[in-house]
């Protein structure tokens, strides 16, 4: 599903965000990406959804080499990726329903189909009763769930989440993670960037640890050997790169 081959990214200001990253995430897999801020987590997600381009190396998503995707074709790539953000990125001048319906409207679905799918997605995240509200009337946890409903409404094969629980208390975080697990159980691939180590420790999924633009650990259980990293990461809670 996701393949990185010798990927490096240098920003125009000279900062090396990624250095020779090799990575493969299989289809249907759920993985966490962790590391302290500036380690390259966000850059990695940005390369996958073409918000940034790799300076060298190959990023292959769904068998598509992103180096060869022209500007005009970027929207088509993004439609196959559901994205979830720490700050939700909802449109506050529209109802919850319209926010979730956005990807379907863009893809040109029939309005009855849109109604059906949006309600199914809202039902999944437990917000069906709030479809007419505007996001501003919702709590942070509910807003995040609207963001998740929007990401999955189009049934993309891949979900990316950038610090999805960054602003939420542990209980709500656990709920969000449970949702992610449910999506994973029906075959969706997930890559979740998070430095909430206590949360990761409870979940037994593959965890990729980044440090200074390199992938330093890739393991399927949560035995963090790098104690220094642990301290680093715990000390920062709600920043985003």
């Amino acid at each position: 599903m996701i393949q990185f081959a010798q990927v490096s990214k240098r920003y125009p200001n000279g900062q090396d965000a990624l250095r020779n990253v090799d990575l493969e995430i299989a289809s249907g897999e759920m993985a966490f990406l962790t590391g302290h801020s500036g380690a390259g987590k966000s850059t990695m997600l940005k390369l996958i959804c073409l918000m940034e381009r790799a300076t060298s190396g190959q990023v292959i998503i769904n068998g598509k080499n992103l180096n060869k995707v022209k500007r005009r074709k970027i929207p088509a790539v993004r439609r196959d990726i559901g994205m979830i953000f720490q700050d939700h990125r909802l449109l506050f001048d529209r109802s919850v329903f319209d926010n979730v319906a956005l990807p379907l409207m863009i893809a040109g679905y029939d309005h009855r189909e849109i109604g059906r799918r949006v309600r199914a997605a809202l039902d999944k995240v437990g917000l069906l009763s709030k479809e007419k509200n505007t996001p501003i009337m919702l709590s942070g946890g509910e807003q995040q769930r609207v963001g998740i409903a929007r990401a999955v409404v189009n049934k993309p094969p891949l979900l990316l989440a950038d610090e999805p629980t960054g602003n939420l208390d542990p209980e709500l975080s656990a709920e969000i993670m449970k949702l992610f697990e449910q999506f994973n159980q029906v075959g969706v691939s997930l890559l979740i960037a998070s430095h909430d180590l206590s949360l990761l420790a409870k979940m037994h999924y593959r965890t990729l640890v980044m440090k200074e633009g390199r992938l330093v650990q890739d393991q399927t259980d949560q035995m963090f050997e790098d104690e220094a990293l642990k301290v680093d990461t715990m000390s920062e809670t709600s920043d985003h790169e």
């Binding site: 289809s27 249907g28 769904n62 439609r79 196959d80 409207m105 893809a107 040109g108 679905y109 029939d110 309005h111 189909e113 999955v152 189009n154 049934k155 993309p156 094969p157 029906v186 075959g187 969706v188 691939s189």
Partner: peptide
């Protein structure tokens, strides 16, 4: 994709041409 047929995880081809026009 190992669970394409029974899951929601499919590549999005969007809707049919007629529906697209209507939309």
């Amino acid at each position: 994709m190992n669970s394409d047929s029974n899951s929601g995880a499919s590549l999005n081809q969007g809707a049919s041409v007629k529906n697209k026009l209507k939309m």
